[in-house]
């Protein structure tokens, strides 16, 4: 836990260049939350076919010109998983654990992770993106809504931080 990570400014510069490369080649930025929505939609489509078909929101994933998973963001997320694994592997950081602060139990942490995931998944669809797809990508294009969104993330997190202090500190 006390291992030093890379300098955040250096990472920021490199990440900015990756984002710029993405804009230069594909004309669009990074992102990931929609890929989870797509995977969930494809899964629901398999299990409850008629139900998923009838949903007006999911139809944008399921009735597009291409299959729901043949998508830029899905492949980007797969790549991010591989890249993260590679980095964690060479730094010897691959370790099965439940990451948490010293004063919270495993099961409480898992429930909170589930709750946080639920809120994030919902909010990302509501705002049409997450910290990377909306905040990072949109802000570098100087999109108005993305800047507002980014400040709202920080506002929401700082407002809620006190309630979850036992989880992390």
């Amino acid at each position: 836990m006390n291992r030093r990570y890379a300098n955040p400014y250096v990472i920021g510069v490199l990440l900015g260049l990756v984002l710029l490369f993405s804009f230069y080649t594909m004309g669009r930025g990074l992102g990931s939350s929609a890929s989870f929505a797509r995977i969930a939609a494809a899964g629901l489509h398999k299990i409850a076919h008629a139900h998923a078909e009838a949903n007006p929101y999911l139809s944008r994933y399921l009735h597009a010109r291409r299959p729901a998973l043949m998508n830029w963001l899905v492949f980007l997320t797969l790549g991010a998983g591989l890249g993260g694994l590679f980095s964690a592997f060479i730094a010897n950081r691959v370790r099965g654990e439940v990451a948490r602060g010293p004063s919270i139990g495993v099961s409480a942490r898992c429930w909170l992770a589930l709750g946080g995931g639920l809120l994030s998944g919902f909010a990302a669809r509501l705002a049409r993106g997450c910290t990377s797809g909306q905040a990072l990508t949109g802000a570098s294009e100087l999109a108005l809504g993305s800047w507002v969104f980014m400040f709202c993330i920080f506002a929401g997190a700082y407002a809620a931080a006190w309630f979850f202090r036992k989880e992390w500190l």
């Binding site: 919902f122 993330i153 506002a155 929401g156």
Partner: peptide, 14 residues
């Protein structure tokens, strides 16, 4: 609204 909720989800889920 999404930003606020995502922020709460961030600090809650980590």
């Amino acid at each position: 609204a999404g930003g606020f909720v995502l922020g709460v989800g961030f600090v809650m889920g980590g």
